[in-house]
Design a binder for these strands. Structure first.
Lengths: 107, 107
DNA sequence: TACAATTATCGTAATATTGCAATATTATAT
DNA sequence: ATATAATATTGCAATATTACGATAATTGTA
């Protein structure tokens, strides 16, 4: 099928999987790292940095944006992206809670 | 395409994405939680627990196994799975390092 | 050895993801 | 208003993932 049976899963499990999905492609990991690293959030050269076409990068950015991790504002002609650090740390916390709880419960 | 251009990405980014990929499906999150929760690792009823067919669960287990997160041993007729907690915590650490470094660098 | 129970693998269908060329949109400057 | 530069969207092809029925392999037991 290819379609996951979402209805049988708990909200908590779906949340974790959706957070993980954002990080499940190396280009998105690279993009996140890059937009965080840039001083003054001067971005737009992500395309040159990563080595994928502009539409592909834009598509990955949309995944990141839909997850609520992207803040953007215009600076001159160029759209300047920035990581939503608060949300990013939220993600980290959700994952850590899962990791901690799960490993604590194990034999 | 559907094939990610692995060759253009760094090992670090690929590692993170591969770890995330294991967690990127709610069934696998549920399975990981479940095999950790079970006392004495008496497993095999994951199928009943999750609500997917036996082949599908087996397939998800393979993804988890390939990631090095699964330890298995036979107990009577039934194969008894257990989480490799050390490896699991390794994964947590890799992700945390990424989260911490990335958010620290950000504006 | 043969049988029953459990798990893995194979084959296949449906859907999702990834990637890019072409095109549209958006914003600034002239 | 027009031109230019940057980004988003569309359309499409290739590959990956997800799911399950059928079947094979594995293990303990009679």
């Amino acid at each position: 099928m290819g379609a996951s049976k979402v209805e049988i899963h708990t909200d908590a499990h779906i949340l974790i999987s959706e957070i993980a999905k954002v990080l499940s492609h190396p280009a998105r990991v690279a993009i996140l790292e890059y937009i965080a690293k840039q001083e003054n959030c001067i971005c737009g050269d992500i395309v040159d940095e990563i080595g994928l076409s502009q539409p592909t990068i834009s598509q990955h950015l949309q995944v990141i944006r839909n997850a609520g991790l992207l803040k953007g504002s215009f600076e001159g002609k160029r759209l300047c992206y920035c990581l939503d650090v608060a949300r990013f740390k939220e993600f980290q916390q959700v994952l850590n809670q899962f990791f901690n709880q799960t490993s604590a419960q194990c034999c």
